[in-house]
Design a protein around this nucleic acid. Structure first.
Length: 959
RNA sequence: GCCGGAAUGGCGGAACUGGUAUACGCGCACGACUCAAAAUCGUGUUCCUUUAUUGGAUUGAGGGUUCGAUUCCCUCUUCCGGCACCA
C-alpha cells in the first residue's frame, strides 16, 4: 500500500488547481454570490507568520464549503505593500522599496500557495501598483472636492524613530504602535480627513452589520460620543464669554469656579496683570510636559487663579476663573465649569487650592411608595478611635424589607439640632454619652424604606455624621423593654463594615464619611433655587432649555475621536495628488494626470525636519499649476499605509479596470463583503477607517451599500507554546513553512490550527497537536486504501448510515457558526466509529462507497489535498472541491432508542435503556423498579415527585 | 475609574433554549508487534477513598432561584483586551 506522503501529493494538486482555475470567481454568475474576505498581508521580509495562516485557513475552509454549497465564491488576496517596514527594510538592505516589495510578495505568494488556499489569483494586486494607487489618489480627491480633506497646522504625534507624523489611532500608550517608540509633539502642517463628520454614522451603522459586540463596543468606545450642553459663562467686565462643555448641566448651581486649559485662546484676555507671572510659569511648565509625564502627574493637578471672574448664568453668581493643567484644549471647548461637590477631579483641585464646595445633588435609595411617612432623620457612624472599629447594629437576618446590619439612626425631634439628635440617639440606643463629632456629610441622603418598628413605608431625609467614642463607659440604655433585644452590637473594621451594611442609604453615608467619596451619581436636586426637589435627569433638560431661552446654553454632543491625520513624511506611500499654487492654493491634480507616480530615486531616507524626502527632488516637485499654468509645487507628503487598505476589497470586484476604481455593474453584483476576518488590533484603525471611506463613497453614490462588511469576526492571537506572545527575543516563534517542510504537510497544519481553539480565542500553539491531526489523516488514507483493495463482501449497516448522517448534520451546523474545532472533533469521532463498524464486517459495498465519499467531502474544506487525492483514487475524475456538499437524511439522525438517566434527588444513580423512543413515565418507572442497582435508592422511601424529560432523564424526588 | 471578555482534568478545549460535566485531541500509564527503538494498533486516564466493589467531592470563591445550575440572578477574586485628567 502506498504511504500517505504530503510532500508528494500537495504540490501536485496545487499545480493542478492553478492550471484548471477552478477557484476563480465569475462576475455576474446567476448563482448566489459570497464574498469571503481576509485582511490582506503586509508583505514583510520575514514571511508569513502563524497568525496569517490561521486567518487564511479559516477563510479558505469557509470559501471551499460555500463553493460546495453552490455559491459563486469570491476569495481574493492582495498585498498591503506601502508603508514603513518595507521602506526601512529597503534602506537597510540598500535596495529600492519597489524591489523589496517584489521580492517579499513573490515569497508570500509561494507560501500562500503551499497552504493550498483556494484563492482567485486573477484578481490579485498590491497597493503600491501605480494602477491601483491611481484610484487611491482619485478617491482622496473625492474627499478633497467635498471638503472632507483639509490642511491644518497642528501639533501632531511625531515618531522620532520613524520620522513621521502619526494618526491618534496609531499611538498606543504614548508609543507608536509599530515600533514602540515614545511619540513627541511636533507642530506641522498636515492633511486631515474629516472622520468626525461621520462619527455618528460610524456608531449607528453598527446596527446594520453583524459584528461581535466586543468589536462594536470598542469602536463605539473609541468614537466616544457624549451628550451634554455647551454653556456660556460671561467674563465679568468683558465682552467675552467662556464656553464650557458639560455632561452634567444639572449641577450648574454647584459650579463654584471655572477652569480653562493653559493653551486656551482666552488665557491672555482674562489674566490680570498681577497674576501674569504665575500664569506664565504654569503655561511654561505645562508645555514642557510630555504625554507620559502628564499621565504620571495626573493626581497632582496644577493651577493658578487668573484674577478674573465669570458670571454663572444660572444664578448670576460671580465665580473665579482658574487656569489648570487638568483641562485639555483638545476635548470639548477647553474650558469647564468646576463642580467640586460632584466631580472627583474638581474636588481634588478645590481641596488643593481651598476653593468652595457646594452640594446640589442628593442620592436616593429605594422607590417612592404611596402614603409614605416623611421624616427627617440622622444616621451616625460611631468609631472607636482606639481600635479603629465602627459600631454596627445587627437587626437579625436580612429579610426582604427589614432587618440586616445598619448604622445608628433615628428621627429628629422638633426643635432639636442635628448634633443634639445624634447624641440623644447614641445615648438612648447604645448608652454612650461621651462622644465627639468628627465630620458631617455636606448633603443629605433620601431613603425610601419599610420600617417594621412603625410598620409603615417611610421616606426619610437623612443627615449623616461621623462620631468618635471618647469614653467606653456604658450607661444604661433607655430603650423600651420590647426594643432592647431587637439588635445586637457589632464592632467592625472599615472593610468588613463596608461589606456588611445592608441598607443602601446607610452604606452610602458610611462610605462617604469614611472614604471621603465624591458623589457623582444621579439624585435629587438641592440648593438650586426653584429647581430644588427635581430629579437630576429632569433638571438636566430643564436648565438647558431655560438657559437656551436666554441664549446662554445649547445641547451639544462631543466626540472623543479626532480627525484623521493623513500626512506622512515618507517616501514609500501614495503621493497626495495636490499641487500648491501661490495664486490658487491647493489644487487637485487633474484625473488625466493620475497617478502621480513616485519618482524613482536613489535616496529616500526620511528627514528630521518634518519634511518628506520627496521635497528634495526639485524636478518632481516643481510643476505648473493645473489652473493657471504658473509655477507651483507638488504636495510632498504621502498617504499613510491605511489609505490603500481603506478600499481594497472593492478593487477585487474589478481588479484591472483602468477607467474607474471598479465598474458600477460589478460593484452592484458583488455588493458588500459577506464575511470579513481579521485581527482585533485593527478594530479602531483599518476597520474604522475603511467603514468611514465606504460610508463617504456611499453618500457620493459610488457604491451600492452603506456598509462595507456585512459580517466581521476578529481572530484570537496564537501565543507561543510557552503561553506568551510570540517574539524574536523570546525565541518562541512558530514558523509555518518549517512545519510544512518537516513532512507534516499543509493539510495537517490546517487541521491543527483550526482544531486548536475557537477562532476568536487567544490560545497557545501546541506543536504536539500536529501529531494528532496527521494521525487522523493517516487513518483516512488507510481507510480508503483498504476499501479500494477489498474485493467483495456485502454490508448493510444502519449504524453506518446513522453515523454519517449525524456527522453531516453536526459538521454543517458547526461550520455555520464558525465552530471549526468542534467540526473537526465530530469528524474525528466519525472516523473512530467507522473503524469500529468496519472491524465488525467486510465493507465493500455501494453503501460503504457512499459513506467514504461523503466523509471525504466533509473533510475536503479542511484538508483539500489529501481528500482530492483519495477522491480521485476512488475513481472520480472531477475535483472534489466542485462536488456538492452532502445533505443529511433526517431519518438517520433521529434517536431510535432511549437511554434514560435516572436521578434521585438530583443525583445521578444510573441509567436504563428502553427500546421505545417515546417511553411513558410509567414504562420508565417500571424499568427502574426492576433494576436493582437503581431501585435500592428508593426502597422504603416515599416518592414525593417525579420529573420526567422524555427520552432523556427522570428525577425522583424523595423526602 | 469606565467598557468588554474569560476562569471547566496534567495541557488545548467540549457541553443546543437549565436536563447524564469533562466530547475531541494532546500528554501520561500499561499492553501488542519488534532483537531493540520509532511508527502503528489496543486498553486505561477529573480528583479523593478502596485490592476491587463502593462511596464521596468537583466547572475561580461565596450566596440565591430550581426537582435539577458550567448554563439564570446577586456579591467577590484573578486574568486578558480596549479607553482614560474626555468634563
Amino acid at each position: 500500500m502506498k504511504r500517505y506522503n504530503p510532500k508528494e501529493i500537495e504540490p501536485k494538486w496545487q499545480d493542478e488547481w492553478n492550471k484548471s482555475g477552478i477557484y476563480n470567481a465569475i462576475d455576474f454568475d446567476p448563482k448566489q454570490k459570497f464574498v469571503m474576505l481576509c485582511e490582506f498581508p503586509y508583505p514583510s521580509g520575514t514571511g508569513m507568520h502563524i497568525g496569517h495562516i490561521r486567518e487564511y485557513t479559516v477563510g479558505d475552509i469557509i470559501a471551499r464549503q460555500k463553493r460546495m454549497m453552490g455559491y459563486n465564491v469570491l476569495f481574493p488576496m492582495g498585498y498591503d505593500a506601502f508603508g514603513l517596514p518595507t521602506e526601512n527594510y529597503a534602506i537597510k538592505n540598500k535596495i529600492s522599496p519597489i524591489q523589496a516589495t517584489e521580492d517579499n510578495v513573490s515569497n508570500f505568494r509561494v507560501q500562500l500557495e503551499s497552504m493550498g488556499f483556494s484563492i482567485d489569483w486573477t484578481r490579485s494586486f498590491k497597493t503600491s501598483d501605480p494602477d491601483y494607487y491611481k484610484w487611491t489618489q482619485w478617491l482622496f480627491l473625492q474627499f478633497f472636492n467635498n471638503g472632507l480633506a483639509y490642511q491644518e497646522e497642528i501639533a501632531v504625534n511625531w515618531c522620532p524613530f520613524c520620522k513621521t507624523g502619526l494618526a491618534n489611532e496609531e499611538v498606543i500608550n504614548a508609543r507608536h504602535e509599530r515600533c514602540d517608540t515614545l511619540v513627541e509633539k511636533k507642530l506641522l502642517k498636515q492633511w486631515l480627513l474629516r472622520i468626525t463628520d461621520y462619527a455618528d454614522r460610524l456608531i449607528s451603522g453598527l446596527n446594520d452589520v453583524d459584528y461581535p459586540s466586543r468589536i462594536a463596543d470598542q469602536q463605539i468606545n473609541w468614537i466616544g460620543k457624549s451628550k451634554g450642553a455647551q454653556i456660556d459663562f460671561k467674563i465679568e467686565n468683558s465682552e467675552h464669554f467662556i464656553k464650557v462643555f458639560t455632561t452634567r448641566p444639572d449641577t450648574i448651581f454647584g459650579a463654584t469656579f471655572l477652569v480653562i486649559a493653559p493653551d486656551h485662546p482666552l488665557v491672555e484676555e482674562i489674566t490680570k496683570p498681577d497674576h501674569k507671572k504665575q500664569v506664565n510659569e504654569l503655561i511654561e511648565q505645562v508645555s514642557r510636559q510630555t504625554d507620559v509625564e502628564r499621565q504620571e502627574n495626573k493626581k497632582d493637578k496644577q493651577g493658578v487663579f487668573s484674577g478674573s471672574y465669570a458670571i454663572n448664568p444660572a444664578n448670576k453668581e460671580k465665580i473665579p476663573i482658574w487656569i489648570a493643567d487638568y483641562v485639555l484644549m483638545g476635548y470639548g471647548t477647553g474650558a469647564i465649569m468646576a463642580v467640586p461637590a460632584h466631580d472627583d477631579r474638581d474636588n481634588a483641585f478645590a481641596h488643593k487650592y481651598e476653593l468652595p464646595i457646594k452640594y446640589v445633588v442628593e442620592p436616593v435609595s429605594g422607590e417612592a411608595k404611596q402614603n409614605e411617612v416623611k421624616k427627617e432623620a440622622i444616621v451616625v457612624a460611631l468609631r472607636n478611635p482606639k481600635t479603629n472599629q465602627y459600631l454596627i447594629l445587627n437587626w437579625g437576618p436580612r429579610k426582604e424589607r427589614y432587618g440586616g446590619r445598619l448604622l445608628i439612626g433615628g428621627g429628629i425631634n422638633q426643635s432639636e439640632s442635628l448634633e443634639e439628635c445624634a447624641k440623644r440617639e447614641i445615648a438612648e440606643e447604645i448608652g454612650f454619652t461621651n462622644v465627639k463629632l468628627v465630620s458631617a456629610l455636606g448633603y443629605r441622603v433620601h431613603s425610601h424604606y419599610f420600617s417594621n418598628v412603625v410598620n409603615k413605608d417611610v421616606y426619610a431625609v437623612i443627615s449623616g455624621m461621623l462620631y468618635d467614642l471618647i469614653d467606653e463607659t456604658t450607661q444604661e440604655t433607655q430603650l423600651d423593654e420590647g426594643e432592647k433585644d431587637k439588635f445586637k452590637l457589632e464592632w467592625m473594621e472599615e472593610d468588613s463594615a463596608l461589606r456588611s451594611i445592608d441598607d443602601k442609604a446607610h452604606l452610602h453615608i458610611f462610605e462617604a464619611l469614611v472614604k471621603n467619596n465624591v458623589f457623582s451619581g444621579e439624585g435629587i436636586i438641592s440648593d438650586s433655587g426653584h429647581y430644588d426637589g427635581m430629579s437630576s435627569s429632569l433638571m438636566r433638560d430643564k436648565i438647558v432649555s431655560d438657559l437656551d431661552a436666554q441664549g446662554s446654553a445649547k445641547e451639544k454632543v462631543n466626540y472623543r475621536i479626532r480627525d484623521w491625520i493623513f500626512s506622512r513624511q515618507h517616501y514609500w506611500g501614495e503621493p497626495i495628488p495636490i499641487i500648491h499654487c501661490p495664486k490658487h492654493g491647493a489644487v487637485a491634480v487633474p484625473i488625466s494626470d493620475l497617478p502621480v507616480e513616485l519618482p524613482k530615486v536613489d535616496h529616500y531616507e526620511p528627514t528630521d525636519n518634518g519634511e518628506s524626502p520627496l521635497a528634495a527632488i526639485d524636478e518632481w516637485v516643481n510643476v505648473p499649476c493645473p489652473v493657471c499654468g504658473g509655477p507651483a509645487r507638488r504636495e510632498t507628503d504621502t498617504m499613510p499605509n491605511w489609505a490603500g487598505s481603506s478600499w481594497y476589497y472593492l478593487r477585487y470586484f474589478d481588479a484591472h479596470n483602468d477607467q474607474a476604481f471598479a465598474d458600477r455593474s460589478k460593484l452592484d453584483y458583488w455588493g458588500s463583503v459577506d464575511l470579513y476576518l481579521g485581527g482585533m488590533e485593527h478594530t479602531t484603525l483599518h476597520l474604522l477607517y475603511s467603514r468611514f471611506w465606504h460610508q463617504f463613497l456611499y453618500d457620493q453614490g459610488l457604491v451600492p451599500t452603506a456598509e462595507p462588511y456585512a459580517a466581521r469576526r476578529g481572530q484570537g492571537i496564537i501565543l507561543g507554546p510557552d503561553g506568551s506572545k510570540m517574539s524574536k527575543s523570546k525565541g518562541n516563534i512558530v514558523n509555518p513553512t518549517e512545519i510544512i517542510d518537516s513532512g507534516y504537510g499543509a493539510d495537517s497544519l490546517r487541521l491543527a490550527i483550526a482544531f486548536l481553539a475557537p477562532y476568536d480565542l487567544t490560545s497557545p500553539w501546541s506543536p504536539e497537536s500536529l501529531g494528532g491531526t496527521s494521525r487522523f489523516l493517516n487513518r483516512l488514507w488507510t481507510l480508503v486504501h483498504e476499501f479500494n483493495n477489498q474485493d467483495g463482501g456485502i454490508s448493510e449497516s444502519i449504524e453506518l448510515k446513522q453515523v454519517i448522517n449525524k456527522t453531516i448534520l453536526k459538521v454543517s451546523q458547526d461550520l455555520e457558526q464558525l465552530g471549526f474545532n468542534t467540526a473537526i472533533a465530530t469528524l474525528m469521532e466519525c472516523m473512530n466509529e467507522i473503524y469500529l463498524i468496519k472491524a465488525k464486517d467486510s465493507y465493500k459495498s455501494v453503501e460503504w462507497q457512499w459513506a467514504i465519499e461523503t466523509l471525504l467531502k466533509l473533510i475536503a474544506p479542511f484538508a483539500p489535498h489529501i481528500t482530492e487525492e483519495l477522491w480521485h483514487e476512488m475513481g472520480n475524475d472531477d475535483s472534489i472541491h466542485q462536488s456538492e456538499w452532502p445533505k443529511y437524511d433526517k431519518k438517520y439522525t433521529l434517536i431510535d432508542k432511549s437511554i434514560i438517566a435516572v436521578q434521585v434527588n438530583g443525583k445521578l444513580r444510573g441509567d436504563i435503556t428502553l427500546a421505545n423512543v417515546n417511553a411513558s413515565q410509567d414504562d420508565v418507572m417500571a424499568a427502574i423498579l426492576k433494576d436493582e442497582k437503581i431501585s435500592k435508592y428508593i426502597t422504603d422511601q416515599k416518592i414525593d415527585r417525579i420529573i420526567y424529560i422524555e427520552s432523556k432523564l427522570i428525577n425522583l424526588v424523595i423526602k
